[in-house]
Design a protein around this nucleic acid. Structure first.
Length: 755
DNA sequence: GCAAGGTC
């Protein structure tokens, strides 16, 4: 009988594939590595009876590094890293897996690669092949292509095996070589330079990486947008009417104007009117949609926003829950539930929960689960979902994450919330005002999904054509405010949008720039850049290189896609990329003094400002550094900055007699403080829940012209759609606003012209 | 001492 060795990307996949192929009848044995077992069973390969052994690796087996002569960090050899020899070898902590592969290869005639069906999976497959062929060159090597681990998918894959796709293997080799050469070269250049020029404040590695640096760039760009923000005053009219003891507020159809005189003219016109006329009373059904099936990026964003966790901690909790069988595989790009998945039994399993049992039962009595699917699939894993019931006592610290995943799952497969909205339109001397009300009829998914809310607001009855004699019109003055600093969810969304990192690595890159002291979290868990991060971004910008922008990474990504499509070779893309980075490197090396100069300028400005304020402890005293001082609340600013700097120091350094680098490294004043907000809100107070210190932005960001990678995001953290103004003053002008419906009380007041 | 990508 032919002996077939199968190798999957991880133990979990190997187990499940073996389970399907063997009809749940396999023998399990230990391998050399603790985590990677052997699953044996009999079956058929290409029409012949065969003995199968299924085992696995744990991701990449190999690692790339520079050879002898380039291990040492020296300024003289740093530039040579673009051409120095690199060696691919088995990662030291994968040696046991390698041993298992070798042992199993000796007795096999056929090797089938069952790694994930993506670029990295293809490359991991090639690494497995090289290990196996080294002990048994006669192996016949195949590739199984499957999109999910179901009986149909894996049997189809086994009956239709193909060969590895060398183009995809090459693309990943190209990526890893570029990442290593470019990362190492710029890291050594930056580190060696700063250590020699500002040794007292710097003792760590100042790394550069194609993912970490654009991530830092996003943080810096937002910080600067806030610093450079100039508030703009505006005026608006507000209609008021009292009926049945209810104060009804009407929103001006022109929303607001940036011209005081014109607004006052409208105000006078309205005040001169004898009455207001109700021109229409419209009722319409409204619904609030249940959430889409959960993928990794959405999960991370939810955990950050709703549970106030870091993405890294959230993923760690999800992985613990996955390993102990409570939830499905947490790394997935899929937000569509496969048709054949048995959602009903997963819902039924939650029927006894004291928290959401009745809701789960209700789903079943109303016709069963009806998932709201998205449009993405990685063809490997289903959306994240709950697997078995649990209690708070048994999960302890991981309960909140389990609860989020379970409530999200139940909400996703339940039904939308529905209600009726009422819009009352009133005309005062041709000026139009609207009042909106909503009556919620069926809370639907909201009963289980405590992370969302929908506030109903009843309007008293109005009749069409009715004249209101006591309709009042007030004029309010307001001012646009700067955008918020990015929180982790914003940052992940930006990385996702620009293709920086993968769903599995977003959180790691963010941790990396924190660890490097490039950024820190302020008390509101929003990112402020440190002087080191600012200096790095400024230095490359000043030299004219877009190192902190996402474009370099996306150019590389396009090259990789070309390699996969066969339109370009690995050698071609590699040479082109190395040449362009080497040119940047050479010019950077010539002008590297800029980096320490800029860094010193930042630190010096802060120390001078601290001394001027009579405070001799630069670590936390500095106020009004740079241009950040906004009148009115400097003390509060200094406090916040100090706290942020202290957190920044939590990275494990510090201590000792030398001044701790981060003390100097974080600005202690500036953007943490909101500019004075003198707008008398015409809206009810914002929905409860975590609110940042800075108020919802009304105007924001630099012009989104060519090359600006920032999406315009409103105060709710959602990308803002472009709308067209229809007021006489600004007719046809385009602007960004909050994506939510106008009658949605959680809608924020975000506003920004598209310039 | 350097990257990013897999995964435990």
């Amino acid at each position: 009988m032919a002996r077939v060795l199968c190798v999957a990307e991880k133990n979990d996949a190997a187990k499940n594939i073996a389970l399907q192929l063997s009809g749940n009848r396999f023998q399990r044995a230990e391998g050399r590595s603790k985590y990677n077992k052997l699953y044996s069973f009999d079956g058929q390969f290409r029409g012949q009876p065969a003995k199968f052994v299924m085992t696995s690796v744990s991701g990449h087996l190999m690692t790339l590094d520079f050879g002898q002569g380039y291990k040492e960090w020296r300024p003289a050899t740093t530039g040579e890293l673009f051409s120095a020899p690199v060696i691919r070898s088995v990662n030291p902590n994968m040696l046991q897996i390698e041993q298992t592969l070798k042992e199993q290869s000796r007795g096999a005639e056929i090797l089938v690669i069952w790694t994930d069906c993506d670029r990295e999976g293809e490359n991991i497959g090639a690494e497995i092949v090289s290990v196996c062929l080294s002990v048994n060159p006669r192996l016949d090597v195949y590739r199984a292509r499957f999109s999910e681990i179901t009986y149909q998918a894996v049997t189809r894959a086994l009956n239709n095996v193909i060969r590895l796709d060398q183009n995809e293997v090459d693309a990943v080799d190209c990526r890893s070589e570029l990442d290593l050469r470019i990362g190492a070269a710029f890291t050594r250049l930056q580190t060696l330079h700063l250590q020699s020029t500002v040794p007292t404040v710097l003792d760590g590695v100042v790394s550069y990486g194609s993912c970490q640096f654009p991530t830092l760039g996003f943080v810096v760009e937002r910080y600067k947008a806030i610093k450079d923000f100039v508030p703009e005053p505006f005026w608006r009219l507000v209609g008021k009417h009292k009926r049945d003891g209810v104060d009804v507020e009407f929103v001006w159809d022109r929303n607001r104007l940036f011209d005081k005189q014109i607004t006052e003219t409208f105000h006078e016109v309205c005040n001169d009117a004898d009455y207001a006329t109700v021109t229409s009373v419209q009722k319409a059904p409204k619904s609030r949609w249940r959430p889409v099936a959960l993928d990794t990026v959405e999960f991370e964003k939810l955990a950050v926003r709703k549970l106030r966790m870091s993405a890294k901690d959230a993923m760690a909790a999800a992985e613990r829950l996955y390993t102990s069988g409570y939830v499905s595989y947490p790394r997935t790009e899929t937000n569509i539930f496969p048709k054949e998945m048995d959602l009903a039994s997963l819902v039924t399993a939650q029927g006894n929960s004291p928290d959401w049992g009745p809701f789960a039962q209700d789903i079943m009595t109303r016709g069963g689960p009806n998932p709201r699917n998205g449009v993405k699939t990685d063809e490997a894993h289903p959306p994240i979902h709950t697997l078995k019931p649990a209690t708070k006592q048994e999960l302890t610290r991981d309960w909140a994450v389990y609860e989020l995943i379970t409530r999200h799952f139940l909400a996703c497969v339940s039904r939308n919330a529905t209600g009726q909205s009422t819009t009352v339109k009133v005309d005062v001397s041709d000026e139009v005002f609207n009042a909106n009300g909503i009556v919620i009829e069926d809370r639907g998914y909201l009963d289980v999904y405590k992370y969302d809310n929908w506030y109903g607001k009843m309007l008293p009855p109005y009749q069409e054509a009715e004249r209101l004699k006591d309709f009042k019109v007030d004029i309010n003055e307001g001012s646009t405010t700067a955008p918020l600093l990015l929180n982790e969810a914003d940052l992940i969304a930006l990385m996702d949008k620009h293709g920086i990192g993968t769903d599995a690595t977003h959180a790691e890159h963010i941790e990396k720039i924190k660890e490097r002291q490039y950024v820190a979290l302020n008390p509101d868990k929003r990112f402020i850049p440190g002087f080191l991060g600012l200096a790095l971004v400024d230095a490359y910008n000043e030299m004219g290189f877009e190192m902190s922008k996402p474009v370099l990474r996306s150019t590389l990504e396009r090259g990789l896609v070309d390699i996969c499509n066969g339109t370009r070779t690995k050698a071609d893309v590699l040479a082109e990329q190395l040449q362009s980075y080497k040119r940047i490197f050479d010019r950077t090396e010539d002008r590297i003094i800029l980096l320490s100069d800029i860094f010193k300028r930042y630190v010096g400005a802060q120390n001078l400002a601290g001394a001027a304020a009579g405070n001799h402890a630069p670590a936390r005293g500095g106020r009004g550094a740079g241009r950040g001082g906004r009148g009115g609340s400097t003390a509060a600013v200094a406090n916040r900055g100090g706290a942020a700097a202290q957190r920044g120091r939590g990275g494990g350094r510090g201590g000792g007699n030398a001044p701790a680098a981060p003390s100097f490294n974080f600005p202690t004043a500036g953007v943490q403080n909101p500019p004075p907000n003198n707008y008398q809100s015409s809206r009810p107070p914002q929905a409860p829940g975590p609110r940042p210190v800075v108020q919802a932005p009304r105007n924001a960001l630099p012009p989104p012209g060519n090359g600006n990678p920032n999406p315009i995001v409103c105060g709710c953290g959602v990308p803002a759609p472009v709308r067209t103004a229809n007021t006489s003053a600004n007719r046809g002008r385009r602007f960004y606003g909050c994506a939510k419906q106008r009658d949605d009380p959680s809608r924020c007041n975000f506003f920004q012209w598209e310039t």
